[in-house]
């Protein structure tokens, strides 16, 4: 399966304009751990960064489990308590500090009082329209940390939302691992300007140049394999479902197919390439359910 067959995927998750999509989403497809990766890239030029980088290379798990950085603050604006609970549960595992606002008024107040690294915004809220909150944020120039998570998939909502400065639009129902990857991309872009190298064990993944090095040696990957690796890295030690991968790799088009054949192929190829490059067996198959990225204990 050649790389040229597959399109960029993170941005594709949202439905319409194909032409407009990659443009809009291009920056956020660089999606991995904001903590170490961003930090380590900053490291290239500063002594502090070099120390941090060395530190992160010592620890087996980099990602956002980096104790050297304060946890990222995420506001979840969601009126469905069970969904909010799921989000908190998943994101706290990623070292985010989550707060939940279930109504328009609460969300409005929290947004005024605190500064969040990322806001997950549902549009249909008790007490008001989420787009109104977005307008308020835009007036304060804080809209760029917003990911709209809406069941209102109407085109105009999506377009209005993005025009109002929201960073991303993820229609419900979404995959937690996909959401996690997008938050990571967003936080990384906002807080680690110009930093785009994610480190994980012997792996160094440059998100902007789209290159991978294993122990310093370049590892050529196809576009799909790279996207797959980035998704897995953003969800280390988590099971990423194969349907999530399928959608991540081919966007809406994935919904036309029940066959996961391309996913199996890409995973197999990526596993083989990583193993051959000496990164070890870091992609585990979880009972045909999905895959988990885990660096082998040193």
């Amino acid at each position: 399966m050649a790389a040229s067959f597959v399109k960029p995927s993170v941005g594709k998750h949202t439905k319409p304009p194909l032409a407009a999509d990659p443009r809009k989403k291009a920056p956020c497809r660089a999606s991995n751990n904001p903590g170490t990766g961003g930090n380590s890239a900053a490291a290239v030029s500063s002594p502090v960064g070099r120390v941090l980088r060395a530190y992160s290379e010592l620890t087996a798990y980099t990602c956002w489990a980096n104790p050297a950085l304060p946890p990222m603050k995420v506001l979840i604006v969601e009126d469905e308590p069970e969904l909010a609970a799921s989000l908190v549960s998943y994101l706290q595992g990623e070292q985010y500090r989550c707060e939940v606002a279930a109504t328009f008024a609460v969300a409005e107040e929290k947004m005024l009082l605190n500064d969040y690294d990322c806001i997950l915004l549902d549009l249909t809220l008790p007490g008001g329209d989420g787009l109104e909150l977005l307008r308020q944020l835009q007036a304060r120039h804080q809209a760029d940390g917003v990911i709209i998570t809406s069941s209102r998939n109407a085109l105009d909502d999506r377009i209005t939302g993005l025009q109002l400065g929201a960073d991303d639009y993820l229609p419900k129902p979404f995959h937690l691992s996909e959401l996690s990857a997008r938050i990571a991309a967003l936080v990384r872009r906002r807080h680690f300007n110009g930093s785009n190298v994610v480190l994980a064990g012997p792996l160094a993944v440059d998100l902007l140049a789209r290159t991978v090095r294993v122990a310093g040696q370049p590892l050529p990957l196809t576009r799909s394999e790279f996207d797959l690796l980035v998704l897995l890295l953003a969800n280390q030690r988590r099971v990423v479902m194969k349907s999530t991968i399928a959608e991540h790799l081919s966007g809406d088009l994935a919904e036309h197919f029940d066959s996961f054949e391309p996913v199996y192929t890409h995973v197999k190829n990526l596993k083989r390439k990583l193993a051959e490059a000496g990164a070890g067996d870091c992609i585990r198959t979880v009972y045909g359910l999905g895959y988990r990225f885990e660096l082998p204990a040193a």
Binding site: E80, E82, L83, S86, L87, S89, Y90, G93, T124, S151, R152, N153, A154, P171, K172, P173, F174, H175, L176, S177, R238, V239, M241, T244, V286, Y287, G288, L289, G290
Partner: peptide, 29 residues
């Protein structure tokens, strides 16, 4: 859209969380 997508989203995220259980058996998977 809202009424149906939200329960679906809950269901999907719960399944995803369930998949993270450390002692998942093959049958459960």
């Amino acid at each position: 859209a809202h009424e149906m997508q939200t329960p679906l989203a809950v269901q999907h995220t719960k399944l995803e969380l369930l998949a993270q259980s450390p002692d998942l058996t093959e049958a459960q998977a």
